[in-house]
């Protein structure tokens, strides 16, 4: 059920990116999709009542064999950590394209950016 809500969030982002005319709205739709995918990956690795994958002193004294059975999955967290920073870089790239287009055409409407200019 939580996966379905997460996928609903992704679908809202997809709808926004496909049907809107405003360029910034399209960027917002892509950002919403990124949030949904990151959230889904983290949810796959969650363990009910688990602990964060950071070893403390008490875990070390009781042995690491028990820590495997109560820690959440560190691998999706590592993947998502890089994906978040990449999303900021790609957001900057998309926004710079939007700003440049606005300077050239004076509008964010993608249906009016048809004529060649300059």
């Amino acid at each position: 059920m939580l996966y379905a809500l997460c996928f609903l969030l992704f679908t809202i982002g997809l709808y926004c990116a496909v049907t809107k005319k405003n360029m910034v709205k399209i960027v917002i739709g892509i950002m919403v999709m990124e949030y949904a995918v990151n959230l889904f990956l983290i949810m796959l690795g969650y363990r009910m009542g688990g602990v964060a994958p950071i070893i403390g002193r008490s875990d070390l004294e009781s042995g690491l064999g028990g820590f495997v059975n109560k820690s959440v999955d560190p691998l999706p967290q590592a993947l998502v950590l890089t994906a978040i920073v990449i999303s900021l870089g790609s957001l900057a790239l998309m926004i710079s394209i939007c700003v440049r287009t606005y300077e050239k055409y004076g509008t964010f409407d993608i249906t009016q950016i048809r004529r060649l200019k300059g």
Partner: peptide, 10 residues
Amino acid sequence: LVILTLSMCC
């Protein structure tokens, strides 16, 4: 760098 460039452009 990218935010500085963005503010210079605007």
